[in-house]
Write a protein that binds this DNA or RNA. Sequence first.
DNA 1: TGTGATAGCTCG
DNA 2: GTACGAGCTATCACAC
Length: 723
Amino acid sequence: MSQFGTLDALYERLEEVTPVRIKGLLETYRDDAFRSRELVRLKDDVFESLDFGEFAMHFDNPFLPIYDDLVHYEMNAVLRTLKAKALFEESQDNAGQTRHSREGGNPALDSKMDPRVKHEDDGKECLAVDGCSVLLDTDEALMRIIQTIPHDAIVAFDTETTGLDPTKDHLVGFSFSVDGKSGYYVPMMHSYLGVGDQVSAASAQKAIHSIFERRVIGHNIKFDLHFVTRFLGVERLAIHADTMVLAWLTDSARSLSMDNLAQSLLHHEMIHFKDTVKKGENFASVAIEDACKYAGEDAYITYRLYEVLREQLLLKGGDEALNEAINVEFPFTLTLLGMEREGIAVDTAVLETFKKEVAHEIATLTEQIHSSCGSVFNLNCPKQLVVILFETLNLPHGKKTKTGYSTDEQVLEGLKNEHPMIPMLLQYREYHKLFSTYIEPLIALAQNDSDSRIYTSFVQTGTATGRLSSKNPNLQNIPVKTALGMRIREAFVAPAGKKLIGIDYSQIELRLLAHFSADTVLVNAFNEGHDIHMQTAIALFGEEEAAKKRNIAKTVNFGLLYGMGQKKLSDTLGITTKEAKEIIERYFETFPSVKGYFSGIVEQAKEMGFVETLLHRRRYFDFGSATPMLKAAYERESVNTVFQGSASDLIKLSMNKIDAMIRTENLRAKMLLQIHDELIFEVDEDVAEVYAHRFVEVMESILELRVPLKTSMHIGNHWGELK
DNA sequence: TGTGATAGCTCG
DNA sequence: GTACGAGCTATCACAC
């Protein structure tokens, strides 16, 4: 901790503020849990009462992003000192009591926790199914163990934090395992009264650096990397594997939680988080000894899951599957980490203005709807709406839901002319959706951040097909289809001096259909750069009808990839099921190789129990035990997965390549978002054009298919301009 | 007070 | 009784 030369100043200042309150707490409250809660609160108070801006100047620290973590860390060290002091004073008064046995420096405890003793003298415990956890709570013990790790070792690594949000939570400790038999836990920032020894920030940093020079594996390691990269002040750390990604690759339908995987693969019952951390508290208040058991287990179980899952992936999918994991998915985790750390800038003024308008519209519409139907009810409640529409007003009802009549948009559209409240209700729905799902949450999130940026979390293992999902907040479903919705996109901006670039793959799934099926009409249409929907229309309806029926062809093309049925197609197009049936039949007559290719997919799915994407990622189906209805669903899913999954393979490759390009060439560019077939970048204004074309080049040449990969690219000051 | 199910809507 | 993937908000019933 010598790098913080002026810590003494902090100690002095803190001593002025805190001892009285700490002593007060000790005297007043005997209950441990209560006291530790109060202590955390006290820490926050002190934190606020000091001028840390000024203090930060004295931290000899080149990494501003980690400043916050370190301050927390040092605060904790200070509190420990103060607490020890207070306890010492108390013990002078109550000599003979045993309650301080947890205090640091207890020789009996030290020797019990010494891992070398444990290994040599207690091998039985380590070899047992349950493994064992070892505490490393001093700098010396930590560094001693770290030095023993071979340079080519695989190290399972896990962090414990105050919460799940990397933008506001902090490291509490970390654990690692080098053999799958024992796990070491290193406490850093536990914070409760009577807390024992913990390691210094400097040693923790040194140890983690050292660990990441080995081959690190983790379970959902992107989460840990958020905290660790910030703590170390580095951009990127290498990883060897992620057991969650491995588990997902072996079967995307299985549960990916460590608890469940340990249960199913190792027949091991994990210590549950809920039993470790009391409700309303966080990991910092967990007793270090309990934390050690929990965190150590996470580490050695991760190690063992890695061994089992790696083998399982190899057995199921062979070298191809394992190579895809190593060459695509694991690097992709780091690509995503980089994107998540960047966030995207939001102009809250734009949202605030919009919010006022929308709030006003909602109020007006609510009023008007209530008076037009003669009763006051909750507009957000479908159940109440059913009573109003189909009982009070006696409007004709349409389709049903599980519990009653549906009031969704489609039904309401059908009733538009039946009652004046219907159009108003549709408008209300749109406004309310924008307000509650987008405007309010986005403003709140942007206000959390000093740069008004918001940070999503991409889930690499979120889908059955290989696509990403995005959550907290979901930035993959920001409105685009209506003028009103577009105004949300206008709030996603490029900061001063920068531009946003949007590049999306054009009709990537249809191109993949052409590639896989090798259908001459499709392949030629793409190779000659024709409008694919128009070409489909010509093929289906003839030259004369084509222009008129392009939209039908477009719907059919999309429906195709979803395994459409006549019923849904007729609903979507507003035609009879008979007409829909004819169109589908004509399509398959016109494109016979497509039909053959589709049946080939389904056949393979039934025979082998899985389908494969372009990069040999698999999705498994159990046709054997399925009902006829489920079988039909599986058929559609297997067909769709090939296209959706292969498209996501392609964009993953592009993202990895662009990420590497940005890093190795130090480009003044950040990749911010992926929306399935589209990438959003933030780049310096003066190089926007040049970079944009380079990114386009990567995306279009990422793989050589039977048809060209095309993109469309836009540059703008906000997301709304990228379409 | 918290959780799971349901309905509805947003996106590709 | 069938169009494929997702996540979020709101309501409501039910449990603690």
